[in-house]
């Protein structure tokens, strides 16, 4: 069940670069760490004043006790300002927000498909899958553009997890796209798997096409530019298959995690 949305400050415990443009931040003292579902996010502000104006939606990467962890890639003004904050600085958070991943019962195989910084919410998801108590097989498939952007998954808090890495230029791991790894896994064995995908739109679109014919459930975590994160501004909508025709759904409110077969890319 979802827990109440709150607004509060957190203190940065550590800020560590995991790749050329990607860092991991721990926040303590937020009082907001309990009951977060994997895939949920916070609206974050790390600066004074009105420029940038809007908070940035940042998904929770992991939770340990009271501490909340974010893995953030610098893509613009807002994320650059967050990256500039140092241990001891305070960030303002609103959340936790949105609907996260559900762990479908009855599946022994779970495949986590990550493109780029889409990998961010997966440590908490992997933990939640393990916490179901069943003996499960979790595979992490992770694709990046090149080795400079490759995040060291060992420092993300995944624990023991079978990981396959692929880069578009072959500078680390295999050469190709993460969907190449997925097709290998899906054709290999017969038993249906629960598939969770998070990454850029073209990747998610490719995953959706690839999973057609596979009997297991597909959940995708969608990214969208958000105004409020609270379901009020109607700004972050994506098209999904509705009753009869397409409808627009708010990523912040109905998502960010959607049934991967319903999204219209």
């Amino acid at each position: 069940m979802s827990i109440p949305i709150r607004m509060g400050d957190g203190t940065i415990g550590e800020s560590v670069w995991l790749a050329e443009d990607t860092f991991r931040l721990s926040l303590s003292g937020t009082g907001l760490g309990q009951g977060i579902s994997p895939g949920q996010f916070f609206m974050v502000k790390a600066w004074e004043g009105n420029d940038p104006l809007l908070r940035r939606p940042i998904s929770v990467s992991d939770v340990a006790g009271e501490a909340i962890y974010f893995v953030i890639r610098v893509t613009g003004k807002g994320t650059r300002l967050i990256a500039g904050r140092r241990p001891g600085d305070r960030l303002s958070l609103v959340g936790p927000l949105g609907r996260g991943f559900l762990i479908p019962p009855g599946y022994d195989r779970h495949i986590l498909v990550a493109g780029g910084v889409g990998i961010a919410p997966f440590p908490l998801l992997a933990r939640a899958i393990r916490n179901t108590g069943q003996t499960v097989d979790i595979k992490l498939l992770y694709g990046e553009r090149d080795s400079s952007r490759l995040i060291d998954t060992g420092t993300m808090g995944f624990g023991e997890i079978e990981t396959s890495v692929i880069t578009e230029d072959g500078s680390s791991g295999r050469k190709g796209l993460v969907t190449d790894l997925l097709s290998r896994v899906l054709t290999g064995e017969g038993e249906p798997a629960a598939i969770y995908a998070s990454g850029p739109w073209p990747m998610l679109k490719a995953v959706q096409a690839q999973v057609e014919g596979h009997r297991g459930p597909l959940q995708v975590s969608m990214e969208s530019f958000m105004g409020c994160g609270l379901g009020s501004c109607m700004g972050c909508v994506i098209a999904v298959k509705g009753e009869g025709e397409r409808s627009y759904e708010r990523v912040c409110h109905s998502g960010p995690v959607f049934d991967g077969r319903d999204v219209i890319f």
Binding site: N50, D51, P52, L53, L54, S224, F225, M226, G227, C233, M234, G235, C236, V237, I238, A239, S247, Y248
Partner: peptide, 23 residues
């Protein structure tokens, strides 16, 4: 009303543009 085609918002200097379309 379903509203307009996304993207519907973009940030500007100390402001934002929206084209929600009365959804």
């Amino acid at each position: 009303r379903p509203g307009n085609r996304p993207p519907r918002i973009v940030e500007t200097s100390s402001g934002m543009l929206n084209s929600i379309g009365l959804a």
